[in-house]
Design a protein around this nucleic acid. Structure first.
Lengths: 207, 207
DNA sequence: GGTCTCATGTAAATAGTTACATGATTAT
DNA sequence: ATAATCATGTAACTATTTACATGAGACC
């Protein structure tokens, strides 16, 4: 017998089909507008996954000429597909592998002037603020647009996770900026003490 | 002229070589013990990157028969390598693409019994606690073992980011578990009302 | 008429993981 | 002896991203 796929993209797409039959395009839009907080897919993954789902018998495709003659493929989850999703949901989850470029750069911050790291963290801070605004919108949408829907409590929990994490990040950014500005001040004091008369030249020593 | 590589693994490895000359094995150990909080690499990436670094002239390899005759390749960063790293550090960073399987599963939680999601979040909670213990260790190591090192303030900042985020996650897990237990209680009440005499059978309706 | 959005898909490239092969040294 | 750790590397696989090709309907 064939083993069920372990690809998470398969289940992400399948999960969206539990709500209602959708096209690949629809799914992409939905993902961007609801779970981009913690999950992303692009067309290069979605379309092959949809094909795979029909081959597995987890979804059926209807070539739907409904909307004006424009071609549109709508996928509907099957009972087997729903069962497969439920089964996956109950499987243990392996911990996420983090890859946060901004922190990687900060880790090597002593290789450059503190101002470089300050700009880095300021950008991260702006990103978190922007994210928080977006998550606030999504939260509102769920509260007003999905009231009473059995999924709503779960959707709200995920969006509140995003909010909690971004808020924590914001607070950390503010602390980090204080530390970095302290380093910048001490650095410039040391430089002007070492090179008294206007000769402010960048100095870099290996350790 | 050749364009500098954009692969982040290249700069992660290069960054560790700024501290001291190291072998691929050393680098892997260091990464696991310091930045696994927000960055990971495996041998399959590290060894090819080291080869690439020598080809770029960003590191030199010394076939080092020092430690007892056991073969060991030690890589040393060059001035060009250091410059390349500094240049990369000043480049703008694109925002991380999140992929958090646990939240993806929770998002589809209404497809299964609340108990499934409860187990999911309990596991996430345990993971955060475990992470916090590890980060506490790392923090202590930096404080006592790297006092006065110019990198220390930066390393401390990154570890404190991990701590802040895991603490926020812990608080969120506790809130989420309250919500989920509420859903479980209401669900079981509804089920026993609908099926009065012992006939507790799983019911699932499509929406 | 032109641009925007809807809509589907593929190809190529890049990134990342896992499994394996190999063998020496050190600690039990 | 033998298990653990040190140590290097490759091959195969899987995942993911980016770019491209195509075309219709909607809107201005």
């Amino acid at each position: 017998m064939p083993v069920p796929p372990t690809s998470k993209s398969v289940y992400a797409v399948l999960g969206f089909l539990t709500r209602k039959p959708m096209s690949g395009y629809d799914i992409k839009k939905r993902i961007d507008g609801s779970i981009s907080n913690f999950w992303n897919e692009n067309y290069g993954q979605i379309y092959p996954v949809l094909k795979q789902l029909t081959e597995l018998g987890w979804a059926t495709r209807s070539d739907d000429p409904a909307a004006g003659g424009r071609r549109r493929h709508v996928y509907t989850i099957t009972a087997a597909g729903r069962e497969a999703l439920q089964n996956w949901l109950a499987q243990p989850t392996d911990p996420p592998v983090y890859r946060h470029e901004s922190l990687l750069k900060l880790f090597f911050g002593s290789e450059v002037e503190p101002e470089v790291s300050i700009r880095l963290i300021e950008a991260q801070r702006r990103q978190s603020i922007e994210d928080l605004e977006r998550y606030g919108q999504i939260e509102k949408q769920i509260r007003v647009g999905a009231e009473g829907h059995p999924g709503a409590p779960y959707w709200l929990l995920t969006v509140r996770s995003g909010i909690a994490l971004r808020e924590a990040d914001l607070r950390w950014c503010d602390d980090a900026l204080k530390v970095l500005r302290g380093l910048a001040k001490r650095g410039s004091a040391k430089r002007s003490a070492a090179l008294p008369a206007g000769a402010m030249k960048k100095s870099r020593n290996e350790d």
